[in-house]
Amino acid sequence: MALLEVRDLRVAFPRGKKGEVEALRGVDLTLEKGQRLGVVGESGAGKSMLAFAILNLIAEPGRVTQGSVTFDGENLLTMSERQIRRIRGNRISMIFQDPMVTLNPVLSIGTQMIETLKAHRRITDREAHKLCVDKLKLVAIPSAESRMDAYPHELSGGLRQRVVIAIALLTDPELIIADEPTTALDVTIQAEIMSLILTLCRENNVALILITHDLGVVAEVTERLMIMYAGKCVETGRTRDIIDRPKHPYAVGLLKALPQNSTRGAKLYQIPGSMPPITNLPSGCPYHPRCERATDECRAAMPPLEHGVACFHPMHETPAEETEATT
């Protein structure tokens, strides 16, 4: 059984008097134990919405309109708040973008860590303290013991995010959801934090959902990849395969547009236009107005996700035997 199964997940927000607008428009994903998945997309593509929906954390007035999120055999979306607390922050941990916002500025690091631990475990203060110091050491925070008394503002951005990771690891989670964990950090610190997350996930067989806009980070850290566009998954598969042989024209365009993928000084490939807002989506495939391969078919209907790609005219044809097997 997969660790996490998401089926046809949809999230909508009210708009106008009676209308609703869908921010997440039917997303499926399967995550095995210890597997690392990257979710890539532009702002507004629905990637953070997916993370919040998985944890049943969609805030009013938004709501999950359809779908299921099965974690270790239980549907998180139908659980009571009491039941889901056994899982959220315990078996599934979260790391968010800005550690200064995640951490409480008026509580010491130690207080925040022990509080988290005691919310999920029956444990004495002394034991909790020891465990917290151990986790701070695990994330390579220098002089961990004395940092327990420090306040967030006394730490650098990189150390703060290390503390956040230590808190996420306190309950020995089976899944970590990290939403742009290094976007607020400098490049050298990003490299430190991402290699730390990668090592910890590998060594402890922790599954990871890494939400980011950076294809380079995804290539370094994840095994599987999902590319989102306008609330939908447009391509999914092994990270290596998609980066080497992308099928969806959007994925192809994103990769081609990277300065790394073009000759020094040459003109960059550019995708024309920009992603449409979810309040004003075109008919059919949401990418068709920007797509050079679009036909009438694309303007008429949304292509289903088949062989990991939602496109009527994918770039690399699927191998013949695979096509036969499904027809």
């Binding site: 990003q190 990668l198 290596r240």
Partner: peptide, 10 residues
């Protein structure tokens, strides 16, 4: 520190 599309450096 630059993440590489080829992976492996982190």
């Amino acid at each position: 520190a630059i993440p590489k599309l080829t992976g492996g450096s982190f």
